[in-house]
Simulated assay, not measured.
Amino acid sequence: MLDALTIATSVAALALAAWCGFAAFRDQPTKDWHFIGMAVVTLLTLVQLIVGIVQLARGEAPEQGTTLFVAYLIGSACAVPAAAFMSLGERTRWGSATVAASAVVLAVLEVRLYDIWGG
């Protein structure tokens, strides 16, 4: 895996978590600009998914198993989009809190991906 991409995704996820957490603190639902932030984080995870699949196709293997690695890649790519859809259904502060929580989960998934790959 590319360490710089993993770090960039983790930092972007934590920034999104802080941003949406602040919105939840201020009793605000997710706004359009939050969805732009979610799109940026999702784009980073999709790039990571593609890079991971390409590295697996080239014959590189993660230390802790390919199946586990692919499962974490897919899970990390789905975490923020799933929360975005949930926040559309919950147009209160809890929609923002859901996105903040999923962004923290994504940051943890990124650390775990790094460990699985052998970092």
Rank of each mutant, 00 (worst) to 15 (best):
L2E: 13
L2P: 14
A4Q: 14
L5Y: 05
I7G: 01
A8V: 02
S10I: 02
A12F: 04
A13E: 03
A13R: 05
L14D: 04
A15H: 14
L16V: 09
A17Y: 09
A18H: 09
W19A: 08
G21D: 07
G21H: 05
G21K: 06
A24W: 08
A24G: 03
F25R: 15
D27G: 02
D27I: 09
W33F: 11
W33K: 09
H34L: 02
H34A: 00
F35E: 14
I36S: 15
G37Q: 12
A39Q: 10
V40Y: 03
V41T: 12
T45D: 10
T45P: 06
L46G: 04
Q48R: 09
Q48I: 05
Q48N: 06
Q48S: 02
L49K: 12
L49E: 03
I50E: 15
V51M: 09
V51W: 13
G52V: 03
I53R: 10
I53F: 15
R58W: 11
G59I: 03
G59L: 04
E60H: 13
A61P: 07
P62Y: 01
Q64R: 10
Q64P: 00
T66L: 10
T67W: 09
L68G: 13
F69C: 04
F69E: 09
F69Y: 15
L73N: 07
L73Q: 04
L73T: 01
L73S: 08
I74G: 02
I74Y: 06
I74A: 04
S76E: 01
A77R: 07
C78N: 01
A79E: 10
V80E: 07
P81G: 02
P81D: 02
A82S: 02
A84Y: 07
F85V: 15
F85E: 08
S87D: 05
G89R: 11
G89E: 07
R91D: 07
R91M: 05
R91G: 05
R93M: 01
R93K: 08
W94T: 10
W94P: 09
G95E: 00
G95H: 04
S96Y: 14
A97M: 11
T98E: 11
T98V: 11
S102R: 06
A103S: 14
V104S: 00
V105D: 13
V105A: 14
V105L: 14
A107M: 13
V108G: 13
E110S: 15
V111I: 05
L113H: 01
Y114A: 01
D115C: 00
D115V: 06
I116A: 03
W117H: 03
G118D: 08
G118S: 04
